[in-house]
């Protein structure tokens, strides 16, 4: 284990020294201290070596395609959501309108049953998608405020 500086010297100045973040006076103090404190000297040499290694460590990161899969701006996201909503409302409206018309026209009860069954089925599907989207909107973690 590395030995520690025994004197009353603020060791954290060594990091400031390494990072060029000290005032001239402090930097001078560190230089003088390093001249006759071998443990601090070793520490600075080690820290320098470590920093050089960390700063040049290469890391893998995801390929471009992986990033591009996700939406990047809010503009496109809200347009997408709005588009869905409009489409769903339109779909429900059209079906409702058609159903109303067909219901009013002269038909047998079997024809009415087929119309109503099919129409309400499609309407239910649309409705479930709508509910799903609204739920997603609510729980969408991207909408949280940061911090």
């Amino acid at each position: 284990m590395a030995e520690t500086c025994s004197r009353s010297f603020d060791e954290s100045l060594l990091s400031g020294y390494l990072d060029d973040a000290l005032t001239q006076g402090d930097a001078q103090r560190v230089r003088i201290h390093l001249e006759d404190c071998s443990s601090c000297h070793t520490l600075v040499v080690d820290m320098k070596r470590i920093r050089k290694a960390t700063m040049t460590t290469p890391f893998t990161s995801p390929a471009d395609e992986q990033w591009d899969e996700r939406p990047q701006g809010t503009g496109s996201r809200s347009a997408f959501t709005l588009g869905w909503l409009v489409l769903i409302i339109w779909g429900v409206g059209v079906i409702g309108f058609a159903l109303g018309h067909a219901w009013a026209g002269p038909q047998t009860w079997i024809e009415r049953l087929i119309l109503f069954g099919g129409g309400s089925g499609i309407a239910l599907v649309f409705l479930s998608v709508l509910i799903d989207r609204l739920k997603n909107r609510k729980t969408d973690r991207y909408r949280e405020v940061e911090k």
Binding site: S12, G16, M47
Partner: peptide, 18 residues
């Protein structure tokens, strides 16, 4: 920042040496 950073650097060095 400086003192916290220094503590972390020493800890890293110690962990590395260990």
């Amino acid at each position: 920042v400086m003192s916290r950073l220094h503590g972390a650097r020493k800890a890293l060095r110690d962990a590395y040496l260990e």
